[in-house]
Design a protein around this nucleic acid. Structure first.
Length: 225
DNA sequence: GCGACAG
DNA sequence: ATCTTGTCGC
């Protein structure tokens, strides 16, 4: 396992490759959600990438991979823990999506390189970071209405590193940020459009669901041995 | 030293 | 992340 110092050096090196403008195919056809599930009673984790039709949100393909954790949970180094299973799942995927929505931050990170950016730069695809809670950055009060948002500012230089977005009225907002090859504005619009009925984008909900199933199935197949 | 801290 | 029904509040 690489050291914490090496991981930080890796982030500061790779962050320079992030593209913050839209590099998406014109009509987006396939979008994917990514998530990683953890097992309470073991060190097993399941990575899941759920590819869906962007227009209808029908599930097109599910790719998963179950393995043992290889890196501890350290705020700021989250991607070194969750990327391994996701990269294997990515290789298993037949239908590569046009962009991916990740469950965590993109550039809304102390070194501007959260897991969404790490995944995007690694596989060379557009990614959006959509976290449920804040990791880094300051923001003002947010209107209670659905669709309202305020910028998330970096704690060191006040740069805009993301957007705090209310996807449902009166419900806790989500933290949207650029992962790779997309603008913050486009990322925000897409997340909002994917959260028509629930707080989290549909992509994340589907990936979470199938990741859970994959982990349970793996455990069933290994209990009798 | 104290609090914060994606999943 | 994970453990989880009823319950408090609008």
């Amino acid at each position: 396992m690489i050291s914490e110092a090496a991981a930080i050096a890796e982030q500061t090196r790779l962050r320079q490759q992030i593209i913050t403008t839209d590099q998406l195919p014109d009509p987006i056809q396939f979008i994917a959600g990514t998530d990683v599930e953890y097992d309470k009673e073991s060190d097993l984790i399941a990575g899941c990438i759920a590819v869906m039709d962007y227009k209808t949100l029908e599930v097109v393909e599910i790719a998963t991979h179950v393995m043992h954790v290889t890196f501890p949970y350290i705020p700021g180094l989250f991607s070194f823990r969750e990327l391994p299973p996701l990269l294997v799942a990515w290789e298993k995927l037949q239908q590569k999506p046009d962009l991916l929505v990740c469950d965590g931050q993109g550039m809304a990170h102390p070194r501007r390189f959260g897991m969404a950016s790490h995944l995007g730069v690694t596989i060379g695809k557009p990614t959006i970071g959509c976290g449920k809670t804040r990791l880094y950055g300051n923001h003002t009060e947010l209107d209670i209405r659905k669709g309202s948002s305020v910028p998330l500012l970096a704690e060191d230089d006040n740069a805009v590193i993301g957007k705090v977005l209310r996807t449902q009225e009166g419900i806790n907002p989500v933290f949207v940020s650029v992962g790779h090859m997309i603008s913050l504005e486009t990322a925000t619009n897409i997340v909002l459009s994917l959260a028509k009925q629930y707080r989290l984008p549909e992509t994340t909900r589907i990936a979470d669901h199938y990741g859970r199933l994959a982990l349970e199935e793996y455990k069933r197949n290994n209990m009798t041995h």
